[in-house]
């Protein structure tokens, strides 16, 4: 029994020396504390000196580039909008111009038509009046001729009837009288 106890004790002792958390071995503390602090300080220095500024620089550069791109895009967009507005304005002006030209052409055409029409009317009126004049003249001439004939006939007839010659002036007067009489009758008949 005692031997078993002894063996167990020995085993326990051996166990304690071989295992148990090695982390609690105080002998290793000072060196690890020292080197942890030193290593951390070196890491801190190297990061602050080389890594962090490099990353910050590239991040800033990228941010700036993106900002530039954005502002450039905005500018380009504004410019495009301006061009579009200009184009619209020009288009409107052109359309207006075209409308004006069309209107002018229409006016010109109507004016020309009016002119041609009035010219034609004038001409035809002139021709008509000339023809009428001619007709009137012919009529007058015929009337004169008839009148002369009638006077001669009247002189002849009176001479033959009463044997008395009527003077030309008297005959004329008489014919004139008859004609006015006739004209009056004609007018009354109408």
């Amino acid at each position: 029994m005692i031997a078993i106890a002894h063996a167990a004790e020995g085993a326990a002792a051996g166990h304690a020396s071989s295992s148990g958390l090695p982390q609690f071995d105080v002998l290793n503390f000072s060196s690890q504390i020292f080197w942890t602090i030193v290593s951390f300080a070196v890491l801190l220095y190297l990061l602050t000196r080389f890594v962090i500024p490099a990353i910050n620089a590239i991040l800033d550069a990228r941010g700036k580039s993106i900002e530039d791109d954005l502002s450039q895009a905005k500018k380009a967009r504004e410019e495009a909008e301006k061009i579009l507005a200009n184009y619209h304005k020009e288009l409107g002006a052109a359309r207006q111009e075209a409308g004006k030209i069309l209107e002018q052409a229409r006016l010109e055409a109507s004016r020309l038509r009016e002119q041609v029409k009035s010219e034609l009317e004038q001409e035809s009126a002139k021709k008509k009046s000339a023809a009428l004049e001619e007709i009137e003249l012919a009529k007058q001439r015929v009337i004169e001729e008839i009148k002369g004939l009638a006077v001669d006939l009247a002189i002849d007839a009176t001479h033959k009837l009463i044997g008395k010659a009527v003077t030309k002036t008297d005959a004329n007067k008489m014919v004139e009288q008859v004609m006015t009489q006739l004209k009056d009758d004609q007018q009354r008949a109408h």
Binding site: S39, V51, A54
Partner: peptide, 27 residues
């Protein structure tokens, strides 16, 4: 004071070396 270099300390350096190496390589 004992400031021996142990396997723990060496692996701290290896770990930090890898960290700095990767960062340096990336940059």
């Amino acid at each position: 004071i004992d400031v021996s270099i142990s396997n723990s300390v060496i692996w701290i350096w290896i770990a930090l070396g890898i960290a700095l190496g990767l960062l340096r390589y990336g940059l």
